[in-house]
């Protein structure tokens, strides 16, 4: 056959290219080997080490890790009141930050995606992203200045006979919301921008006023993107421990407990560290049901 004769005459590189073209699976596995290896060894590997070390114990005199299998640490998570409280508080903070972000992000995104003139929209998106370019620490310290005694918040609220919230749980929620807000605005902006104008017309055509169209068409269609944004705000908030140190006053979150346990009781720190991982996996599973993950 002529085609085989031609194939035999081709250079090895071209033959390889041809083979790869005919075998998409081979091509895919070659492409994915390196990243998958990285993922498996470094990422999942370190998670596995974390999980396994959570079952070890420490010598309480020397703080040395004793590799004896025990579930005491996990038992302690659920029975020690401080741990329980801090875990619940951390989840509460993450949920509060998520809810606050969604409430703020929706109108902002609605403006940038549908009300602002089309030529300004890319600029507005850049403006929303700008805070992400500044250093995390600079932003949190800025909030420390704003919320400090006699700071900007106090000064603003003074005419109304009020004072700022000061450092604490509330300040932590505000600062975290500020930090992660862009991650909520962006997916909502994208979803609103891609919402076909036709559907809004169709809703009005069938007799719906603006409020009805918003509730019955806009919100349900954008909800998966809100859920997608919440994956970021929730997991980033749950893992944070620096913001709370700077503006949280005496407030403790899981991250702080992990940090303070690392020197003294590494296995306990590991057990505490698995909590956010598990919570986030559960959160992802819950969000998957809303279709959020396919709109990430």
């Amino acid at each position: 056959m002529t085609s085989t004769a031609q194939a035999a005459g081709r250079s090895p590189v071209r033959r390889l290219a041809g083979t790869l073209h005919r075998r998409p699976r081979l091509r895919l596995s070659l492409l994915l080997t390196a990243p998958l290896l990285w993922l498996a060894v470094l990422y999942l590997g370190s998670l596995a080490v974390l999980f396994v070390s959570a079952f070890w114990t420490t010598n309480s005199f020397t703080s040395e890790v004793v590799k004896v299998w025990s579930t005491d640490n996990f038992h302690a998570l659920f029975t020690t009141p401080v741990f329980r409280q801090v875990i619940l508080r951390s989840i509460g903070v993450a949920l509060a930050v998520t809810a606050l972000s969604a409430v703020i992000a929706f109108p902002v995104a609605f403006y940038t995606a549908r009300i602002a003139k089309p030529k300004w929209r890319p600029l507005l998106v850049v403006a929303i992203l700008t805070p992400l370019w500044a250093s995390y620490l600079v932003k949190v310290y800025a909030w420390r200045l704003i919320l400090s005694q006699g700071g900007f918040a106090d000064w603003m609220l003074k005419p109304f006979g009020l004072s700022g919230p000061g450092f604490g749980l509330f300040a932590t929620i505000i600062a975290l919301t500020y930090l992660w807000l862009p991650y909520m605005i962006l997916p909502i902006h994208t979803a609103l921008e891609q919402l076909p104008a036709n559907l809004l017309d169709a809703s009005a055509d069938l007799g719906a006023r603006a409020g009805r169209t918003f509730r019955s068409v806009v919100v349900p269609m954008v909800l998966p993107s809100v859920a997608a944004g919440s994956v970021f705000t929730f997991s980033l908030s749950l893992g944070d421990y620096i913001t709370v140190q700077i503006v949280g006053g005496k407030t403790q979150l899981i991250g702080n407990l992990v940090y303070s346990n690392i020197e003294l009781n590494l296995p306990m720190a590991a057990a505490l560290g698995t909590v956010p991982v598990v919570v986030i996996v559960l959160y992802l599973l819950a969000m998957r049901r809303t279709g959020a993950l396919s709109s990430l």
């Binding site: 076909p196 559907l199 017309d201 169709a202 009005a204 069938l206 007799g207 719906a208 006023r209």
Partner: peptide, 29 residues
């Protein structure tokens, strides 16, 4: 406004609501 007119439209690309079932689409108005 469109919702004040006794007129309905069949759009060129149909403009069905993707998050609703067929029945919910028809019953929407």
């Amino acid at each position: 406004a469109p919702f004040e007119r006794d007129v309905h439209t069949v759009f060129q690309d149909y403009a069905l609501f993707p998050h609703m079932t067929v029945e919910q689409n028809v019953a929407y108005g």
